[in-house]
Amino acid sequence: MDEIDQRLVSILRHDGRSSISNLAVELGLSRATVRARLERLEADGTIIGYTVVLRADAVFMPVRGLTMVEVEGRVVDRVIDALVGFPEIGAIHTTNGRWDLVIEFSAQSLTDLDTVLRRVRLVPGITASETTLLLATPRSTRARL
């Protein structure tokens, strides 16, 4: 991504519904150029979609947290495949250090969280986990609002 692509993505992060015409004016480019850049960024997988971004603590499931997971041997891909089916899991990250995976989750209540964590611990290949609850999100770089 060059500087113009970075500016384009930054504008879209603030307003993913901005029209091609508005983007062109803001970038000082023609509509055709902006459209071509967007198409290229979408085709190469840099932009994978457009969505509504909610404040993290305003989501429908108010209990949020991170679970660090240790996986035995070389079955990380199998564990990830199993975890993808959990609707409470918003993101799965591979990492280095003590933990193999970091899972972002949300649940409706602490009781629901307990149920989810029990199911996660039963996934074959998971040997240990540690969970931290998120209390508030005073700043999030995801939305960049």
Rank of each mutant, 00 (worst) to 15 (best):
W99G: 10
L41K: 04
R142G: 13
A136C: 06
G125W: 10
I4D: 12
E39L: 15
L12D: 02
G125N: 10
R78Q: 14
L12F: 03
F86V: 02
T67W: 03
A36C: 03
A143S: 09
T131W: 14
I4P: 01
I126N: 01
R37G: 00
R31I: 10
T137K: 08
R17N: 12
V75C: 11
R13G: 13
H14V: 02
L54N: 03
G90K: 12
T95S: 14
V116C: 00
H14F: 05
I126G: 06
R144Q: 11
S30E: 05
T131E: 04
T132I: 08
T111D: 12
E130M: 14
R74H: 14
R144G: 13
V116H: 04
L66F: 15
R7Q: 15
E104T: 10
L27R: 00
S21E: 13
R142H: 04
L117H: 02
N22M: 07
T131Y: 11
R98F: 12
R121F: 13
V59E: 05
A32L: 10
R144C: 06
A128P: 05
R7M: 13
E88D: 12
V69I: 14
T131G: 00
T46M: 04
T137M: 08
S140M: 11
S30G: 11
S18R: 12
L41Y: 03
T131C: 01
S30F: 02
T51K: 06
R17H: 10
D100I: 00
Q108P: 02
R144T: 04
L41D: 08
E42K: 11
F60I: 07
I92D: 11
A143K: 04
I48M: 15
A91G: 05
V120M: 10
V71M: 08
T137A: 08
L66V: 09
R55G: 03
